[in-house]
Design a protein around this nucleic acid. Structure first.
Length: 1084
RNA sequence: GCUGAAAUGGUGGAACUGGUAGACACGCAGGACUUAAAAUCCUGUUCCCGUUAAGGGAGUGCGGGUUCGAUUCCCGCUUUCAGUACCA
């Protein structure tokens, strides 16, 4: 029978599924190999021809490794939480679980069609409760952990508590928030349970903190940095703005150095590693303090105690917002305030308390300045999210200014006045014990500007400082004379959108604060400016400007007429800044005459000595925001206590481990509530212990994908995310194939979680993915027809072939690539495709309509989507698998072009024919293989081994063609040869090979675990070689010589041969180069 | 701007440590089979000169260099793609 791919492929796919041919178990007697694909997000569009590229490559590799005797784990699953399903749910009202299920079924069918050797018994879906139970569990471990820099690993939070109980907090070497309190063990012991929780949150590896987030209003959620591209959301392309919000974050910054170092030990593409290095953004430099020349002086600053002056200097950027909020929010609170004031006034508590006092732009209800305590009475507006936000923002600000804040609700003050007063008293008394702490006003003052620099050697070239307009010191250091300038500049900066600020890097702008700072080494007085080229979010939000060495500083100095100081003798600074480090220092105090290296060391020493600086490493990478205000994601296993109804501000607590999974509740709509809360706020009666609010955000898309490769090892386990035995056997992923679009998202977060799980002893390897390959993107290749326009430019019903279109006025229209073959339009199908084309006329060239082409993204709107299903239908899965590999190197991006698939199909047919006679009867012989046959076979055995090991799949396909062409020419029907060839080809074209394997008399299903044929180099040994002979490197002729001839003999032969007479007119050559078995080159 | 990758016939691409550039496949042209078409098979196919043939010349983005010999190594440039962006 002729090659019946359809029947063969269906039969074998069924066989593999029914017999679970590819199911694997832990087997300590066999070496393991873990081949992983980046699992797909099951979208409604289904797979296009680009998706399986990586899956085919990994499948070939997995099958090859099985033949080589490895125990191969090759699983597949679905990253099934995420935005598109939810957007679809919003539009149609269908539950995302339902559409996701439908999409997964379609994906599964498409994957099955291609004959992959996945072990489907290990399938995972991130949206299934028995999977996300463990995502939540890992979240809980993170919450219960802190990062100890002494041991350089994550530890359980209990070891932190032990430390807080025994040593001052300042001596704990932890990665934590900047605003941790400098507690002594005695302070810690007096804190209430709630206060302790609040403090611990600043150390936990996942924590709740107010941070600046990327808010996408159109999607109604925050986005991670890697989900934002050029100020727009990666999914959907909606605008993204910066906004302050209370958010869950992951303290990935704790792992910055390990994430960076780990890159040196893994086999990943260099560009990918480079991207991660850039993202982590390590810079080695120094922190340097520039003392502010008191302006206003500390004495004058003391005058801020005066309400009036304090109010006047309260010009923080938030001022307008504050004024409005405080007015509105306070209207109804006067009763409670009055009650409390009667109990606090005239030092009744033993401490001087002031009412309605302004601190740094905030009006505090009550404040005790000497103890640094602010007492706030909150009204009923409390339940509004905005107000909550505002309260948090204010608390943080006051904390930074050195004040503690306690809050009471109106109800508390009115109904339990005495308890409130005694609470305040108790608090005030406790605060007295902190005698050594700086006074709030001292702390609020800020007597120095701290900068981060990578060129500490240029410190003598500093001619001014620049701080970000958002910098907290701006308000304080601005002199009255400069106030107007600064206000105007801040207003102007705020108006600029993030995008404008990024785009416009040419315009120099800034404003002088009126204040000066002192260079810590030579005492030079330098002015302090603000400018938006300094970013608040990086380093300290302040830079020391060295115009001679930094181009931005140079332009700034030129623009505002500030001095430019040359600091190296080799520096060329007439036209622009010169950042080079060559030469000896001049104008540079203690480092004059030194070179870069010694100078840098010396400066840091000097700074340390005067206590004004120290060496420091900075990372660009920020902590990752870990919450989305969306429905379709993992619920965060956290509730807030005290409950809102009890008037508390609610601190986060974990639910009990035994209560996992915390199921995603049902909601009536997948939209935010009217008050702007996330969709989960719609869930009815969804409260922890019927009392406490749950967290309403869900986890981001990357949560489930950050550990999924472990679940595959033991996918059904109820007791752990995977059994210890499975983890210690499979260890890590040996080969990971996927797109480079995950470079800074998934691949960074996965490495982070892996390191964390290792620190806690749950897994064994520091890096999860030993070897990684990026498959290239497959672009679309669009076809066009050219409609002729009439004199008025209106479209007619005539179409002109591509080659003749220049003679007409035409409009190019996309035409469905599925009715075009080799760029020739199928005119009948075109006419049938739309009613308006039924009577279309065509101007042809060579009796054909040739379409134009262009490379574009593969998308429905461009009519260039090729579905693998169609190609499988027409040519079979084996042909498609081989053709996708044949297209070119796996890593390279290329446009899809179906032209050429015929060649692969013809090859498989020719291969099939090797086993059959002219009448398609299966025929093989048991004769001794000939030398030529063995040579062909062993060439391909070697070639495939080499190619697969270096992931060069395209070259193997060509070599298979050559082998089959050769064996066809040799009329080879030899069983021994053909059977080995079947094994060799089976990882590429498994269906046809299974069929032939059985026809050859082997047991069905055993091919997958057969042994790869052993390469015998003896079969490739030749006696003779046809030497190319070149004159001066240009090949002229060939000469056939025995390989036994030594170099000298060959030379002698050449000298005496007619080649010399023919090409050199008999003249003696200058030199003859002979490389045995390679070439002969005659130098004339 | 910076970082990284790449550039070879009409097309996809091959040439692994410097050693016959264009394997393999598509497309195209010619031929066989056929009443005809499709399918299949055979031959040719880097470009230029040479009517054919023999033969000669050029040639791996561009310009140089190293070497007996360079698609491969070195220097400079151009273009394309990707990432990143005032990171101090």
């Amino acid at each position: 029978m002729d090659y019946q791919f359809k029947q063969i492929e269906q039969q074998w796919q069924k066989f593999w599924a029914e017999n679970e041919t590819f199911k694997v178990e832990v087997d300590v007697n066999k070496p393991k190999y873990y081949v992983l694909d980046m699992f797909p997000y099951p979208s409604g569009a289904g797979l296009h021809v680009g998706h399986p590229l990586g899956y085919i490559a990994s499948d070939i590799f997995a099958r090859y490794k099985r033949l080589k005797g490895f125990n191969v784990l090759h699983p597949m699953g679905y990253d099934s939480f995420g935005l598109p399903a939810e957007q679809y749910a919003i539009q149609t009202g269908q539950h995302p679980a339902k559409t996701t299920e439908t999409n997964i079924n379609r994906y599964r069918q498409q994957l099955d069609n291609l004959g992959f050797s996945f072990d489907w018994s290990k399938e995972v879906r991130t949206s299934s409760p028995d999977y996300y139970k463990w995502t939540q569990w890992i979240f809980m471990q993170l919450f219960n952990s802190w990062y100890n820099l002494d041991t350089n690993q994550a530890e359980h939070i209990s070891t932190l508590i032990e430390k807080l109980e025994t040593i001052p907090a300042q001596e704990i070497n932890a990665v934590c928030d900047e605003d941790v309190q400098h507690l002594l063990p005695s302070d810690w012991s007096t804190l209430s349970g709630e206060e302790k929780q609040a403090e611990l949150l600043k150390y936990r590896l996942t924590y709740l903190r107010e941070s600046t987030v990327n808010w996408c209003a159109a999607l109604g959620t925050v986005l991670a940095n890697d989900e934002v591209k050029d100020g727009f959301s990666e999914r959907g392309g909606f605008p993204v703005e910066q906004k302050k919000m209370m958010q869950w974050s992951m303290r990935i910054s704790a792992y910055a150095e390990r994430l960076l170092q780990g890159l040196n030990h893994i086999d990943w593409p260099e560009p990918l590693k480079e991207m991660q290095r850039n993202w982590i953004g390590k810079s080695v430099g120094a922190m340097v303090k520039f003392s502010l020349i008191p302006n206003p002086s500390p004495k004058e600053k003391g005058a801020q105690e005066n309400t009036k002056l304090g109010y006047e200097t309260a010009n923080s950027p938030f001022w307008d917002l504050l004024k409005e909020n405080s007015k509105e929010n306070r209207k109804n609170a006067t009763d409670a305030e009055l009650v409390l004031w009667q109990k606090l006034r005239d030092s009744q508590t033993g401490f001087k308390i002031r009412r309605q006092h302004v601190i740094e732009g905030f009006i505090a209800d009550f404040v005790c300045l000497s103890k640094g305590l602010v007492i706030e009475v909150d009204g009923g507006y409390h339940s509004k999210t905005e107000a909550l936000e505002y309260d948090k923002q204010r608390t943080e600000f006051l904390n930074q200014a050195g004040f503690e804040v306690i809050r009471f609700s109106n109800e508390e003050v009115i109904n339990q006045t005495d308890k409130v007063v005694s609470d305040i008293k108790e608090k005030l008394e406790r605060l007295t014990s902190k005698s050594g702490a700086p006074s709030p006003l001292e702390r609020a003052g800020g007597e120095a500007i701290e900068v981060f620099t990578t060129r500490v050697d240029t410190i003598y070239g500093v001619s001014f400082l620049v701080i970000a307009p958002e910098h907290e010191l701006v308000a304080q250091i601005t002199t009255p004379a400069q106030q107007a300038d600064i206000d105007a500049y801040i207003a102007q900066t705020k108006k600029k959108s993030e995008l404008d600020r990024m785009a416009d890097t040419k315009t120099v702008s800034g404003a002088f604060t009126g204040s000066y700072a002192l260079n810590p080494l030579d005492g030079t007085k330098v002015p302090v400016w603000i400018a938006d080229y300094v970013l608040a979010g990086y380093g300290t939000g302040a830079v020391m400007a060295v115009p001679s060495g930094d181009q931005r500083d140079y332009l700034f100095a030129k623009h505002f007429n500030l001095p430019i100081i040359q600091i190296l003798d080799a520096q060329q600074i007439e036209e622009q800044a010169d950042p080079t480090k060559e030469g000896k220092y001049i104008n540079s105090g203690v480092i004059n005459g030194l070179g870069y290296k010694e100078a840098s060391v010396k400066i840091v020493e000097e700074l340390k000595e005067v206590g004004m600086g120290y060496g420091k490493i900075n990372y660009r990478m920020r902590d990752a925001i870990f919450g989305r205000q969306r429905y379709w994601g993992e619920p965060v296993p956290v509730y807030f206590k005290p409950a809102r109804s009890a008037g508390g501000n609610g601190l986060p607590y974990l639910i009990d481990e035994s209560e996992l999974p915390l199921l995603l509740p049902e909601v009536d709509k997948y939209l935010p509530t009217e008050s702007g809360e996330p969709p989960l706020a719609r869930a009815k009666d969804w409260k922890y212990k019927d009392e406490y609010e749950y967290e309403l955000s869900t986890m981001p898309g990357w949560a489930g994908s950050s550990w999924y490769w472990y679940r595959y090892m033991d996918a059904k386990n109820d007791l752990a995310f995977a059994d210890e035995k499975a983890i210690s056997y499979w260890k890590d992923v040996d080969l990971y194939i996927g797109g480079s679009e995950h470079a800074t998202g998934h691949l960074l977060y996965s490495r982070f979680w892996n390191k964390f799980l290792k620190d806690l002893g749950h897994v064994t390897e520091e890096e999860p993915f030993k070897k990684l390959i990026n498959q290239g993107m497959i672009q679309g290749r669009s076809n066009f027809v050219y409609r002729i326009n009439d004199a008025e430019g209106k479209g007619t019903n005539s179409f002109v072939s591509n080659g003749l279109k220049s003679e007409y006025q035409t409009t190019a229209l996309h035409v469905d690539v599925n009715i075009v073959v080799n760029d020739i339009l199928d005119i009948d199908k075109f006419k049938a495709s739309r009613e308006e084309y039924a009577n279309a006329e065509f101007i042809l060239e060579n009796a054909k309509y040739i379409c134009g082409t262009e490379v574009e993204k593969m998308s429905k709107s461009k009519f260039n989507v090729i579905s693998p299903d169609d190609l499988v239908e027409r040519y079979g899965a084996d042909t498609l698998r081989m053709y996708e590999m044949f297209l070119g190197p796996l890593e390279q991006s290329k446009p899809w072009n179906t032209n050429g698939i015929e060649g692969v199909f013809k090859f498989l047919r020719k291969f099939w024919r090797l086993f059959h006679d002219e009448n398609w009867n299966f025929t093989v012989s048991d004769a001794e293989p000939t030398k030529a046959e063995l040579k062909s076979l062993h060439k391909i055995i070697k070639k495939v081994e080499d190619d697969v090991e270096r992931f060069s799949f395209n070259t193997s396909v060509s070599s298979f063609m050559i082998a089959v062409n050769e064996l066809t020419d040799l009329k080879c029907k030899n069983r021994a040869i053909l059977q080995d060839l079947v094994v060799t080809l089976s990882s590429y074209a498994p269906h046809i090979c299974e069929e032939l394997w059985v026809l050859l008399g082997n047991k069905a299903g055993t091919l997958s675990y057969a042994a790869y044929p052993t390469f015998n180099p003896a079969h490739l040994v030749e006696n003779e070689f046809n030497y190319p002979v070149s004159i001066n490197g240009k090949t002229k002729t060939n000469v056939n010589l025995p390989l036994s001839m030594e170099v000298a003999e060959v030379e002698k032969y050449i000298l005496e041969s007619e080649i010399i007479t023919k090409y050199l007119d008999g003249k003696a050559p200058k030199k003859i180069i002979v490389v045995k078995g390679r070439i002969i080159n005659i130098v004339a």
